[in-house]
């Protein structure tokens, strides 16, 4: 009856103003990319929330698995030398 007519799902990314990157706003259904863009404009920027929109078919998103959380993200946790606060600078030295 109605089950076969559902349009695919799209993820919507909105740049809220110039100088910022696009951030994920949510998703919606649309038959194709052109309509997805327009639907996103109507749905996610109707209160002037954006200046630019990306839409991506949800099926095209590859995500890291939460089960691999430890191996993926923990190894970065013990490398404080990547952060500027790791380094001590003599008092009075500026512009560093």
């Amino acid at each position: 009856m109605s089950g076969s007519t559902q349009w695919p799902l799209w993820e919507v990314f909105v740049r809220s103003r110039r100088g910022l990157s696009h951030t994920h706003a949510g998703s919606l259904h649309a038959p194709d990319a052109e309509m997805a863009l327009r639907n996103a404009r109507d749905l996610y920027t109707r209160r002037s929330e954006g200046v630019s929109i990306w839409v991506v078919p949800s099926a095209s998103v590859t995500a890291s698995s939460p089960d691999e959380k430890d191996s993926f993200f923990e190894p970065a946790g013990d490398k404080p030398y990547r952060h500027p606060t790791f380094y001590e600078i003599p008092e009075g030295v500026r512009h560093l």
Binding site: D32, A33, E34, L37, R38, R41, T45, G50, V51, S52, I53, W54, V55, V56
Partner: peptide
């Protein structure tokens, strides 16, 4: 589906106001 205007996040999928 074959005739969209090319890929790339800064082309086909983007609308800029």
């Amino acid at each position: 589906s074959g005739d969209d205007s090319g890929g790339g996040s800064d082309a086909a999928g983007e609308v800029t106001a």
